[in-house]
Computed example of a mutant assay.
Amino acid sequence: MLSVSSRTGKKTTDDIQRRLQSVLGYTPYAIYFGFVPFVIYLGFKLGPDPGTPEFSLMNLLPIEEI
Rank of each mutant, 00 (worst) to 15 (best):
M1L: 06
M1K: 05
M1G: 12
L2V: 01
S3A: 06
V4W: 08
V4I: 07
S5W: 03
S6I: 00
R7E: 02
R7Q: 07
R7S: 03
R7T: 08
T8I: 12
T8K: 01
K10W: 00
K11Y: 03
K11P: 00
T12A: 06
T13E: 06
T13M: 06
T13L: 06
T13F: 07
T13N: 00
D15T: 05
D15C: 00
D15S: 12
I16T: 04
I16Y: 01
I16A: 03
Q17A: 08
Q17N: 04
Q17I: 09
R18Y: 06
R18G: 09
R18W: 05
R19T: 07
L20E: 11
Q21F: 13
S22E: 11
L24F: 15
G25M: 10
G25A: 14
G25L: 13
Y26A: 05
T27Q: 06
P28M: 14
P28T: 08
P28E: 10
P28W: 11
P28N: 13
Y29M: 14
I31V: 15
I31R: 12
F33D: 02
G34V: 01
F35S: 14
F35Y: 10
F35T: 13
V36I: 15
P37N: 08
F38E: 00
V39Q: 04
Y41N: 01
Y41E: 05
Y41A: 14
L42R: 14
G43M: 07
G43V: 09
G43T: 06
F44W: 12
F44C: 03
F44M: 09
K45D: 11
L46S: 03
L46E: 10
G47V: 05
P48W: 03
P48H: 11
D49A: 15
D49W: 15
D49L: 15
P50N: 07
P50Q: 12
G51Q: 04
G51T: 11
T52Y: 14
P53E: 12
P53I: 08
P53T: 09
P53M: 09
P53S: 13
P53L: 08
P53Q: 08
E54Y: 03
F55R: 12
F55P: 00
F55Q: 09
S56F: 05
S56Q: 08
M58T: 13
M58A: 15
L60K: 04
L60Y: 08
L61A: 12
L61D: 03
L61V: 15
P62H: 02
P62I: 07
I63C: 00
I63F: 11
I63P: 00
E64T: 07
E65V: 10
E65K: 09
E65C: 06
E65F: 04
I66G: 09
I66Q: 10
